[in-house]
Amino acid sequence: MSNPVLHAFFLGRAFAEVLSEKIEDTLTNALSDLGKFDAEQREQLRQFIEEVQTRAQRDVTQGNSVSTPGDDGADLQETIDDLRAEIARLKAELKNYRHQQV
């Protein structure tokens, strides 16, 4: 190419095409990762709910009763504490994931 203006035009056009493709690939990958994360979180929530329902049904079937204030409620309190810790852990993981996406 002998004309530098024509050369600059084609160089600029090629640059814009490549940049556009890279941005499209990056956006597609990010949305795909977000979709996977959302699906994984929904599945974990579904499994959690299923486990809670299964345990509750088992306790009802076995005739277990809830601790009353006069009873030793340590097991119930321990379960509540474990659930709170798990929720806090999941919130922290979600926060870390969101910060990685930025």
Rank of each mutant, 00 (worst) to 15 (best):
S2F: 03
S2N: 14
N3F: 03
P4A: 10
P4W: 04
P4I: 02
L6Q: 12
H7A: 08
F9M: 04
F10D: 05
L11H: 07
L11F: 04
R13V: 10
F15P: 00
F15R: 13
L19N: 04
S20L: 05
E21L: 06
E21S: 04
E21V: 00
K22E: 08
I23L: 14
E24I: 08
T26A: 10
T26N: 05
L27K: 15
N29D: 11
A30H: 05
D33H: 09
K36S: 07
K36R: 13
K36F: 03
D38A: 09
A39K: 15
A39L: 12
E40D: 15
R42W: 00
R42N: 08
E43R: 12
E43Q: 13
Q44A: 02
Q44P: 00
Q44I: 00
Q44R: 11
R46F: 08
R46T: 14
R46Q: 12
F48E: 04
I49E: 13
E50N: 04
E50I: 01
E50C: 03
Q53E: 13
T54K: 10
T54V: 12
A56G: 02
R58T: 15
T61Y: 03
T61E: 15
T61R: 14
Q62D: 09
Q62T: 14
G63W: 11
N64E: 10
N64A: 08
S65I: 06
S67V: 01
T68N: 07
T68H: 01
P69Y: 04
G70A: 09
G70D: 10
G70F: 04
L76P: 00
Q77R: 13
Q77Y: 01
Q77C: 04
T79S: 09
I80A: 14
I80C: 03
D82Q: 15
D82N: 13
L83T: 05
R84M: 07
R84A: 10
R84S: 09
A85Y: 03
E86I: 08
I87C: 07
A92G: 03
E93R: 14
L94Y: 10
L94I: 02
K95P: 00
N96F: 00
R98Y: 11
H99Q: 12
Q100W: 08
